[in-house]
Amino acid sequence: VTVHVNRYTYHFDNPEEAEKFAREMAKRLNMTVEIHGNTLKVE
């Protein structure tokens, strides 16, 4: 599972951890999480 935050890319083996990380980053940056299959984008 890949998480994109701005120009950074993070890889996770565990989808739940990836989503938790993405949501935490989105909250911190006041952004939203978009899910595209195995890719989560924080925008």
Rank of each mutant, 00 (worst) to 15 (best):
residue 9 T to V: 14
residue 7 R to C: 14
residue 27 K to N: 13
residue 10 Y to K: 03
residue 1 V to W: 15
residue 37 G to T: 05
residue 23 R to W: 14
residue 35 I to S: 07
residue 32 T to H: 12
residue 29 L to W: 08
residue 28 R to F: 10
residue 10 Y to D: 00
residue 6 N to A: 08
residue 33 V to M: 05
residue 6 N to H: 12
residue 34 E to D: 06
residue 40 L to Q: 03
residue 28 R to I: 13
residue 42 V to L: 15
residue 6 N to S: 10
residue 1 V to L: 08
residue 31 M to H: 05
residue 20 K to A: 13
residue 16 E to P: 04
residue 41 K to Q: 07
residue 34 E to N: 15
residue 37 G to R: 04
residue 21 F to D: 00
residue 36 H to C: 07
residue 27 K to I: 13
residue 40 L to D: 03
residue 29 L to K: 02
residue 39 T to S: 10
residue 37 G to I: 06
residue 28 R to A: 12
residue 10 Y to Q: 02
residue 5 V to F: 10
residue 23 R to P: 00
residue 19 E to T: 09
residue 31 M to V: 10
residue 37 G to P: 05
residue 34 E to V: 15
residue 8 Y to G: 06
residue 17 E to A: 11
residue 43 E to M: 15
residue 37 G to L: 06
residue 9 T to D: 05
residue 34 E to L: 15
residue 20 K to M: 11
residue 11 H to I: 09
residue 35 I to T: 07
residue 6 N to Y: 13
residue 20 K to N: 11
residue 14 N to W: 05
residue 41 K to N: 10
residue 23 R to M: 09
residue 12 F to H: 00
residue 13 D to N: 10
residue 27 K to Q: 13
residue 1 V to Y: 15
residue 15 P to C: 11
residue 14 N to T: 12
residue 2 T to R: 05
residue 5 V to N: 02
residue 17 E to S: 08
residue 4 H to G: 02
residue 26 A to H: 02
residue 25 M to T: 11
residue 18 A to E: 00
residue 38 N to P: 07
residue 10 Y to M: 03
residue 4 H to K: 12
residue 40 L to A: 03
residue 7 R to E: 13
residue 19 E to A: 09
residue 26 A to G: 04
residue 35 I to N: 06
residue 13 D to T: 11
residue 13 D to W: 09
residue 42 V to C: 07
residue 34 E to K: 15
residue 2 T to V: 12
residue 5 V to Q: 03
residue 5 V to T: 04
residue 39 T to P: 03
residue 14 N to Q: 06
residue 42 V to M: 05
residue 13 D to S: 10
residue 20 K to L: 12
residue 29 L to I: 03
residue 11 H to F: 13
residue 2 T to M: 09
residue 27 K to R: 11
residue 20 K to W: 09
residue 38 N to T: 10
residue 43 E to K: 14
residue 20 K to S: 11
residue 3 V to N: 02
residue 30 N to F: 04
residue 40 L to Y: 12
residue 25 M to Y: 05
residue 2 T to I: 12
residue 2 T to D: 07
residue 13 D to G: 06
residue 41 K to W: 15
residue 21 F to A: 02
residue 10 Y to S: 01
residue 21 F to V: 01
residue 21 F to T: 00
residue 15 P to S: 11
residue 3 V to I: 04
residue 20 K to P: 01
residue 7 R to N: 14
residue 13 D to R: 06
residue 43 E to Y: 15
residue 21 F to C: 05
residue 12 F to K: 00
residue 25 M to F: 05
residue 30 N to E: 06
residue 3 V to P: 01
residue 24 E to M: 11
residue 14 N to V: 07
residue 12 F to S: 00
residue 39 T to C: 11
residue 32 T to V: 14
residue 42 V to T: 04
residue 12 F to A: 00
residue 28 R to V: 10
residue 32 T to F: 08
residue 26 A to D: 02
residue 28 R to P: 03
residue 18 A to Q: 00
residue 40 L to C: 03
residue 15 P to K: 14
residue 8 Y to S: 09
residue 10 Y to G: 00
residue 19 E to F: 15
residue 20 K to Y: 09
residue 8 Y to C: 14
residue 13 D to F: 08
residue 28 R to E: 11
residue 37 G to K: 06
residue 31 M to F: 05
residue 38 N to G: 07
residue 34 E to H: 15
residue 11 H to A: 05
residue 24 E to H: 07
residue 4 H to M: 13
residue 42 V to W: 03
residue 19 E to M: 15
residue 42 V to Y: 03
residue 42 V to H: 03
residue 27 K to L: 14
residue 33 V to F: 05
residue 9 T to F: 08
residue 15 P to T: 11
residue 5 V to A: 04
residue 42 V to F: 04
residue 20 K to G: 05
residue 23 R to E: 11
residue 12 F to W: 01
residue 37 G to Y: 10
residue 2 T to P: 02
residue 11 H to V: 10
residue 37 G to C: 05
residue 30 N to L: 03
residue 22 A to Y: 02
residue 16 E to V: 13
residue 11 H to N: 06
residue 20 K to E: 13
residue 9 T to C: 08
residue 24 E to G: 05
residue 17 E to N: 05
residue 26 A to Y: 02
residue 19 E to K: 08
residue 30 N to K: 04
residue 4 H to Q: 13
residue 32 T to A: 09
residue 9 T to E: 10
residue 3 V to D: 01
residue 22 A to S: 02
residue 33 V to I: 09
residue 4 H to C: 08
residue 43 E to G: 15
residue 1 V to M: 11
residue 9 T to N: 05
residue 9 T to G: 03
residue 26 A to K: 03
residue 22 A to G: 02
residue 21 F to Q: 00
residue 33 V to N: 01
residue 3 V to M: 02
residue 11 H to D: 04
residue 17 E to D: 12
residue 14 N to D: 14
residue 43 E to P: 04
residue 12 F to E: 00
residue 28 R to L: 14
residue 1 V to A: 09
residue 36 H to L: 12
residue 6 N to W: 12
residue 39 T to K: 08
residue 41 K to T: 14
